[in-house]
Design a protein around this nucleic acid. Structure first.
Lengths: 137, 137
DNA sequence: GTAGAACCTGGAGTGTGCTCCAGGTCAAGC
DNA sequence: GCTTGACCTGGAGCACACTCCAGGTTCTAC
């Protein structure tokens, strides 16, 4: 009795298309799936992966976590919480806030280090302007 | 004929003292020396390392390079230039400028990513305020 | 002079995050 | 129907930056 209208099927992407859109390699995508970072992706009858828009959005979020220095292990924890549904939103929020705070710390440290690189660069520029001063600086 | 006055000897540091001051481990210090990141450090007659102030300053600079994401391989190149003396100042300056520019790029990217983490955090906060909206976000 | 802590060496081992491989199966164009 | 390229799997291998280990030597305090 269920009316099976052929809904305008959401378009799916082959792994090659996801590689192109995300910049992740085939192997990394399979590794992430094996590691549980993404829930098992849809398959064709022939067992080939077909990614949906939601998969892509989640991958892009994972990439953001990775680029901000989150470890695979922590991403696994986050993904596991997400898989458990809405009840884990507070936990996920806490994880993100902590990660965000760490990131702020790291950015501050980088800026401090950048400033001292600038000092060293200035030092070398002065050396070039008035050479013959000292060695090994 | 060289008058060997016992000059007020520059105080040197044992490896344990350098560990304490730099936060690098014994093994890392030996690894850096083996890798040529620091020139062979002075030794006692009994072959134990004694670090001078200049060694410490250089280690601190290396730490800064490392913390700003320079690879060991690049640090080796930098250290090799430094060992060749003042003639390589232009090359060292070029390396540092390039590294500094990379760092600026990475800091910018981190800030962009931090902003999108903030968006995600906001999203979760709204989910908590008005629950029951949607899943897997 | 001796105990115990600190130090030495070369080389093997580790954790992280992929990356590659062999040996297959599947899909699309002709 | 056949070719050819895309895709599949489990598992081995790799680059990086350390970290650990065994077995020996040196230093310091008593």
């Amino acid at each position: 009795m269920t009316s099976e209208q052929p809904l305008p099927q959401e378009p799916t992407l082959t792994i090659a298309q996801v590689v192109e859109r995300t910049g992740l390699s085939h192997d990394t995508l399979r590794y992430y799936e094996k590691a549980g970072l993404i829930q098992r992706v849809g398959r064709t009858t022939g067992n080939q992966r077909r990614y949906e828009a939601a998969d892509l959005a989640w991958l892009e979020f994972l990439i953001r976590l990775r680029e901000t220095g989150m470890s695979i292990a922590d991403m696994q924890r986050f993904a596991a919480l997400r898989a458990r549904g809405d009840a884990t939103v507070p936990d996920r929020l806490a994880m993100l806030r902590e990660h965000r705070a760490d990131l702020a710390d790291r950015i501050r440290a980088l800026r401090r280090n950048a400033a001292s690189l600038d000092d060293k660069i200035d030092h070398y520029e002065r050396l070039l302007d008035q050479p013959g001063s000292d060695e090994l600086s």
